[in-house]
C-alpha cells in the first residue's frame, strides 16, 4: 500500500467526504472534481450521511492478495440516500442475512493492513442499520 495515497484518501475513506456540484447540486462520491451529471467543476466538499441501502451484494471466497486473511467477506454496491452508489464491504452481518434493499449505515473499519510492519488503512464499510436512535 502506498502511504501517500492512503493518506490522500483519508477524508473520503474515514467519513465519506464527497463533493457537491456548485451548478446542479448533484452529490458526488467518490469525489471526482467534475460533476458526472453536468460536467461543471465540483470541488466543494460535502459529507455524505452514510445512510443507504444495498443495491447488490456478493461474498468473496477467493480474495485478491492482501485480503486473504479476511475471507469470506461480503461486498456490496450501496445506494447512498444522497444518490451516489458506492462499492464497499459489509460488516457486522453474515452473508445470508443480506438482501437487496436492506438499509445500511456507514462505519469506519480497518480495510487492510500492510503486513505486520506496514500501515493500517481505515475506511468506510456498511452494516445493517441495527439501532434506530430517535434523531
Amino acid at each position: 500500500m502506498s502511504v501517500p495515497n492512503t493518506w490522500r484518501l483519508q477524508q473520503q475513506r474515514y467519513r465519506l467526504m464527497g463533493e457537491v456540484c456548485d451548478r446542479c447540486k448533484t452529490k458526488i462520491f467518490p469525489p471526482r472534481d467534475v460533476c458526472p451529471e453536468c460536467e461543471a467543476p465540483a470541488k466543494t466538499q460535502f459529507a455524505l450521511s452514510g445512510r443507504g441501502e444495498v443495491y447488490s451484494y456478493s461474498t468473496v471466497y477467493n480474495a485478491p492478495a492482501g485480503f486473504e486473511d479476511a475471507t469470506p467477506y461480503t461486498v456490496a454496491l450501496v445506494r447512498l440516500e444522497e444518490g451516489p452508489l458506492v462499492t464497499a464491504q459489509l460488516t457486522d452481518v453474515s452473508a445470508e442475512e443480506v438482501e437487496i434493499g436492506m438499509p445500511v449505515e456507514m462505519v469506519t473499519r480497518r480495510l487492510r493492513a500492510d503486513g505486520a510492519e506496514g500501515i493500517i488503512s481505515y475506511g468506510y464499510k456498511f452494516r445493517p442499520v441495527q439501532f434506530s436512535p430517535a434523531i
Partner: peptide, 20 residues
C-alpha cells in the same frame, strides 16, 4: 472484536455516538 476492528474503530464509533 471482528477482524476489521481495533481501538481506532471502536473509538471512532464511540466518539460519533458521543457527538450525536
Amino acid at each position: 472484536p471482528g477482524l476489521d476492528e481495533d481501538v481506532v474503530t471502536i473509538s471512532i464509533e464511540a466518539a460519533r455516538n458521543a457527538l450525536a
